[in-house]
Amino acid sequence: MHNYFCDQCGSALDPGEICECKRTTEAQPEKRFVTYADWEAAGDFNKAAKPGDYVEERIVDEMRDCLPPASMKAGYLQVGEPYSHEYDPRSNRWSPTFGTFVKSGPRWIYCGNCFLNDTTEPPRPERKEK
């Protein structure tokens, strides 16, 4: 039985262990833990969270329950409404992107707005300034 828990994400820890949600390295950008309150304060989920951020399970539950999911498997959820349409070079057509969440251990990670059944955001072309 664990007696130590992360004050940010609630994960069970061993004595002296630093939670993964607080670790940062130069190779890996800082991952934040986004709470439901952060989402409410930002007013828009995409302003509150960036791809790679840990998210509170309540957020994933809300995303799952607001509409039937576009895709849902064990430890994987794509929100039911497309966020945008992006060019997909694999299919040579414009395809919808969906808010995507993947479970890693006890935590959920926001992957961004990905094509159906994918976990990485599509690259967006650079806009040329005139």
Rank of each mutant, 00 (worst) to 15 (best):
P69Q: 15
N113P: 11
K128V: 05
S84M: 14
N92F: 15
G43M: 08
D118K: 14
A42Y: 12
G10I: 14
N3E: 14
K130L: 13
G52P: 14
D14M: 06
M63K: 01
R23P: 00
A48C: 05
D53S: 03
G112I: 01
E30M: 08
G105V: 12
R32Y: 03
E121V: 09
P89S: 15
E57V: 07
T97A: 01
G99W: 01
D118M: 06
G99Y: 00
W39N: 01
A49G: 02
E126D: 11
C66Q: 07
L13V: 02
E129C: 15
R107P: 01
L13I: 12
V79E: 00
E17L: 12
S11N: 07
D44I: 14
Y54P: 01
D53C: 05
E20K: 09
T97V: 11
C111G: 01
K130Q: 14
K31G: 10
Y110H: 04
P82F: 03
Q28I: 11
R58W: 07
D44H: 02
F115R: 00
C19G: 07
N46H: 06
A48L: 04
Y87I: 08
K73R: 12
K22H: 07
G10H: 15
R107F: 02
R23L: 14
V79A: 01
L67H: 12
R32H: 03
P51Y: 01
C21Q: 05
R64S: 09
A27Y: 10
Q8Y: 05
F33P: 00
E81I: 06
A70P: 08
E56L: 03
E26N: 11
C21G: 11
A48T: 04
S91F: 09
A41W: 04
V34P: 04
M63W: 01
P29K: 11
R127S: 13
S84E: 12
C114Q: 06
P69H: 07
F5I: 06
R23N: 09
M1H: 11
P68F: 13
R107N: 02
P96S: 08
N117S: 08
Y4Q: 10
P96L: 15
K31C: 13
L13P: 04
P122L: 06
R23K: 11
C114E: 01
D118G: 09
P15E: 15
E86Q: 14
G112P: 00
R23V: 15
T35I: 03
C9M: 07
E17Q: 15
A37T: 06
M63E: 02
F5V: 10
P122I: 05
A74G: 12
A12K: 06
P69F: 05
P82G: 00
P106D: 09
K50A: 07
